[in-house]
């Protein structure tokens, strides 16, 4: 692989490129934001599995496990985050895959974000979050996960 801008921190578990599943649960049909984030993470040297729209929590967790990702990024605009994200976390737990780190982005009110973090979501990005911030956070989360493995 060619040398990236910062080769070391782009690597996840076992020295491979960080793998991220980007999915959009819920029924709303806009995935512009999710695609922008997917491309930014790719440009930061990550392998992004783009699962697309209208994914159920079961789809997402199944895909995350098959693809052996380090991180799951959920993009939600529909307001269904209070139902869908806890369901993803619960499924990961039930399948003994809670080592996969979940972050979320979209329109999520502060009090909900705090609640989701208590449940185990490791980062929540609002609509104003910069791509640099998202990339750095994703790298940090993957590095922490790699250190735990």
């Amino acid at each position: 692989m060619p040398e990236g801008k910062s080769a070391a921190p782009t690597h996840g578990a076992k020295g491979r490129p960080i793998r991220v599943l980007i999915a959009k649960p819920g029924l709303d049909g806009h995935d512009r934001g999710a695609k922008v984030v997917a491309r930014a993470l790719r440009d930061a040297g990550m392998e992004v599995i783009y699962a697309g729209l209208r994914q159920t929590p079961e789809d997402i967790v199944g895909a995350a496990m098959e693809e052996d990702v380090d991180l799951i990024g959920l993009s939600i605009l529909s307001g269904a985050h209070n139902v869908l994200i806890p369901r993803v976390l619960a499924l990961l737990k039930a399948r003994k895959a809670s080592d996969i780190v979940v972050f979320a982005g979209g329109i999520i009110p502060d009090e909900d974000a705090a609640r989701l973090k208590k449940l185990g979501v490791k980062a929540v990005f609002g609509p104003g979050a910069s791509l640099e911030h998202i990339i750095e956070t994703a790298r940090g989360l993957a590095a922490k996960r790699a250190a735990r493995a």
């Binding site: 993470l41 790719r42 392998e47 098959e66």
Partner: peptide, 25 residues
């Protein structure tokens, strides 16, 4: 960058509990 966007999964519609399929990007 060495990164990639792997988007082939988008086209796959399947029962997530069907253990008779394994899809890997």
């Amino acid at each position: 960058s060495g990164g990639a966007v792997l988007g082939d999964r988008i086209r796959i519609e399947r029962d997530p509990d069907d253990t008779g399929v394994f899809f890997r990007s």
